[in-house]
Amino acid sequence: MSMPVQPTYVLVHGAFANSFSFAPLQAELGLLGHRSAAVDLPGHGFEATYPAAYQSPQDPVGLASTPGAIKGVTLADNVAYLIGVLERAKENGPVILLSHSRGGLTATAAANRRPDLIDHIVYVGSWCQVDLTAAGYHAEPEMASVDPASLGFAMAGDPAELGLLRVNFRTADEKALDAFRAAFLADGTDDEFRTFFNTFQPDENLDVGTEDDRAQAATWGRIPKTYVRLLHDATLPLALQDRLIREGDALTPDNPFTVRSLDSSHLKWLVDPGPAARVLADIADGVSRPTP
Rank of each mutant, 00 (worst) to 15 (best):
D212Q: 14
R278Y: 14
G248E: 03
D191A: 15
A277H: 05
D187S: 00
T195A: 13
P273L: 01
D203G: 09
S265E: 01
F257M: 09
W269G: 00
N168K: 11
V279M: 09
Q216F: 11
D173W: 08
R170S: 03
T171N: 01
L244K: 00
I283T: 03
D282E: 15
L177G: 06
V271P: 01
L251N: 11
G286Q: 05
P224W: 13
N198K: 12
I223D: 05
G188R: 10
Q216K: 12
G163K: 14
G286H: 09
E161Q: 10
P253K: 02
A239V: 13
T235N: 04
D178V: 08
P253I: 07
Q241N: 11
F200D: 00
N205M: 14
L185R: 00
L251E: 02
G248F: 04
H232L: 11
E204A: 12
I245C: 09
L262Y: 03
L280G: 00
D282H: 13
Q241E: 12
P202Q: 13
G248R: 10
L162H: 03
A276V: 07
N205L: 08
A277M: 03
V287A: 07
R222I: 08
D190Y: 00
L236F: 09
W269P: 00
D212R: 13
E174A: 15
P253M: 10
D249P: 14
T258Y: 01
R181M: 10
V279I: 15
F257A: 08
Y227W: 11
G163T: 05
P237T: 02
L206A: 10
P224M: 08
R222E: 06
V271N: 10
Q241P: 11
A218T: 11
E211K: 13
K225T: 06
L185G: 01
P253E: 09
P253W: 06
L206G: 07
I283E: 04
P237G: 11
V167W: 00
G274F: 08
V259F: 06
D207N: 09
A182V: 03
A281H: 04
N205E: 12
P256D: 09
L244P: 02
A176Y: 04
E192P: 09
P275D: 00
L162T: 02
L244G: 02
A215D: 03
D213R: 03
R243Q: 12
P224I: 12
K225R: 15
P159V: 04
D207V: 11
D254Q: 12
D285P: 02
Q201I: 11
G209E: 01
D158S: 14
Q201Y: 10
D254I: 10
L240E: 01
A217D: 04
D190E: 15
L164F: 03
R246G: 13
S264Q: 08
A239H: 10
